[in-house]
Write a protein that binds this DNA or RNA. Structure first.
Lengths: 211, 211
DNA sequence: GTCTATAGATTGATAGAC
DNA sequence: GTCTATCAATCTATAGAC
């Protein structure tokens, strides 16, 4: 195995440390030390700390969101071919499944999921806006698909429920490893497949509830 | 109106700035400047930055969680008096309503809600653990009440759904002001009363869904 | 491309006068 | 209790040798 070049090692180390300690809580020194690179290498390869996290987010956001868009479009076209609206369950599966499965798609993907799970709540608008910019088209298509699946639901109610959904998903992605079961504090673990089975009935029922 | 003493002004300023910029993103200098106090006053009155945020969180967490516990106990005893289990809707209302209503309970409460909404996702374990320590007994009672309301639901499924619920609520509390409606980006606003009416059908249906 | 060295700014915390 | 002044540590970013 060829040793990865410096740029890759910095990306990997930054992904991990940003996930663990947050954007502000991670110094360029910590990143370059973990990457066994020189402090100046960050600015040589990326230009600034902000440009570095943009690169970290972009590296995995682009393929992940492409996958989510693709799954949603498949549900949409399959339904149109049959002349019926898609079911809420189909739409939600298309969105939730890639999100959770991505976690085990390779080394570092897990850190990335923690990172973007946290990004929604980042105080720093820098990080938040980068993330939101990438996911916006996916959320817009999700909104359209759910409106087709639930035509009787007022648009305003649908949008709020969409945010409830995003909150649940974001929280789970962010905390999948640290959750504990009351009252004894047993660690609470579930694989991506099982998590889909837990999330979908909850979200589907919530979405389909009468307004 | 008497001018508030320095300690109070520092608490108020810290609450606001921590809510807007996060714990790490807020310097003691920014806090004392906003509070029109001297930089050294923070360490004189509180001892350290960490002790300051502990005081900020405790000031409102204690009464809020006392209210939530009280509401849950009321539901519990009312149901026992009638010899029937409470409904999921009653239990969820007892938990969600004070959370959202607290927001408009006075000046600063709104900042505090943003602050604790964010605390669940704070990278800094300091902040996270302070918050979790305060809310833990409430979540444990909520778990017990929901188990009574939904006796057929496996305990493991219930706990996960509880976390889905906490994710939704936390995300809404954190973002109530900044959410936008696709595709035009209209600001999306709802008062606490309306938000309860939006959240409860979603959460109740999700909780009651068959496993 | 990689390194050392350092500039330039900001931070939490404290000493000590009043 | 409040203030000025400052320490010691940390940070991002850059200049310049190799």
């Amino acid at each position: 195995m060829e040793p990865k070049d410096t740029k890759q090692r910095i990306l990997d180390a930054a992904e991990h440390l940003f996930a663990v300690n947050g954007y502000r809580g991670t110094s360029l020194r910590a990143i370059t030390a973990a990457a066994k690179a020189n402090l100046a290498a960050v600015n040589y390869h990326f230009g600034s700390k902000q440009a570095l996290i943009e690169a970290v987010i972009e590296r995995r956001s682009v393929p992940l969101n492409r996958l989510r868009l693709q799954r949603l479009e498949e549900v949409q076209t399959a339904a149109r071919r049959q002349g019926v609206p898609p079911t809420a369950r189909q739409v939600l599966t298309a969105f939730v499944e890639p999100s959770l499965a991505f976690r085990t798609s390779g080394p570092g993907a897990r850190d990335f999921i923690t990172l973007i799970g946290r990004a929604l709540a980042e105080p720093d608008d820098t990080v938040r806006n980068i993330f939101v910019g990438h996911i916006r088209p996916v959320v817009e298509l999700l909104d359209i698909c759910l409106a087709e699946a639930l035509p009787e639901l007022p648009a305003r109610v649908l949008i709020w429920r969409l945010h409830f959904l995003l909150g649940s998903l974001s929280h789970i992605m962010n905390n999948m490893d640290k959750l504990q079961a009351p009252p004894i504090g047993l660690p609470l673990v579930a694989g991506p497949k099982e998590m889909v089975d837990l999330l979908l009935p909850f979200l589907t029922a919530g979405m389909e509830a009468p307004a």
